[in-house]
Design a protein around this nucleic acid. Structure first.
Length: 257
DNA sequence: ATGGTGGCATGGCCA
């Protein structure tokens, strides 16, 4: 079972990119972030006609997540909001597919270290920690994936001095990420690739992608039972080079399921 | 230190 995550930065603009990417059969389950549309606007019929089961959890203008799956979604235990946080911001959905619990996250960006949005991000991550801890008790095969807006360590940024003091790399953000790992979750990509220099996001500005000025902020964190079945994980940079791309590249992990 | 680009919306906000 190949599980992918991709922040598409507007499903309106990126619908053709998603369709083109999926036509290459890169995964069996795709989690999307930053739909920037209400759920009703999601192009459900198009993807259903291609054989995908799907569920969207969107809002106007900002945020929004969705799941496309080759396997049916178990409807009975869908969660569409993170307990304890503002339900108006659609940043999470938890579904069960093929015996795997999938928690699809769009973690707040945080804007600037020390800002109100930064504290909102840290609070959101603390709530996620509690939610995941509870989910683990019910679902041994669990993956928490998405746009974390955190580069876990210095291997995950193109230039440590460039990023020093900025959002995505601050010690409290990294501690929140490590706390999730402390629940027993493993970063699928890092588990298989100890070398640095692999990125999943490049700013639209400054020609960042062409100069590979990136950071690795999109992750799949899997539980012990799932990590035991992990065989591959890679970042597909190709769609980032397409015309009018998302600023994120998809990340795909393969589990023997 | 600032601003560079992009999406949404149409004035800024968010990333």
């Amino acid at each position: 079972m190949r599980i992918a995550t991709w922040n598409v930065n507007s499903m309106n603009v990126r619908q053709e990119h998603v369709a083109q990417w999926l036509a290459e059969d890169p995964c069996d389950l795709l989690c999307l972030q930053e739909l920037k549309m209400v759920s009703e606007k999601f192009p459900a019929e198009r993807f259903k006609s291609l054989g995908w089961h799907l569920l969207a959890n969107g809002q106007k203008t900002y945020n929004g997540v969705a799941v496309l799956s080759r396997f049916p979604l178990e409807e009975r235990d869908v969660v569409l909001d993170l307990p304890g946080v503002d339900p108006a911001q659609k940043r999470l959905m938890a579904v069960t597919v093929n015996g795997v619990r999938v928690v699809n996250c769009y973690v707040p960006n945080g804007s600037e270290v020390g800002s109100d949005k930064y504290h909102y991000k840290l609070d959101w991550l603390a709530k996620l920690q509690s939610f995941v801890q509870a989910q683990l008790a019910s679902y041994p095969q669990l993956v928490v994936l998405g746009d974390y807006n955190i580069a876990p360590d210095d291997r995950d940024v193109h230039d440590v001095s460039f990023w020093a003091g900025k959002i995505l790399v601050s010690p409290p953000e990294r501690s929140a990420y490590q706390a999730l790992c402390g629940l027993g979750l493993t970063d699928a990509f890092r588990h298989l690739q100890p070398e640095g220099g692999y990125f999943s996001w490049w700013d639209y500005r400054l020609g960042s992608f062409q100069r590979n000025m990136g950071v690795r902020i999109d992750h799949l964190l899997s539980s012990p039972a799932l990590t035991a079945k992990l065989t591959h994980c890679h970042i597909d940079r190709e769609p980032r080079g397409w015309e009018r791309p998302s600023d994120h590249a998809p990340v795909i992990a393969t589990y023997l399921l």
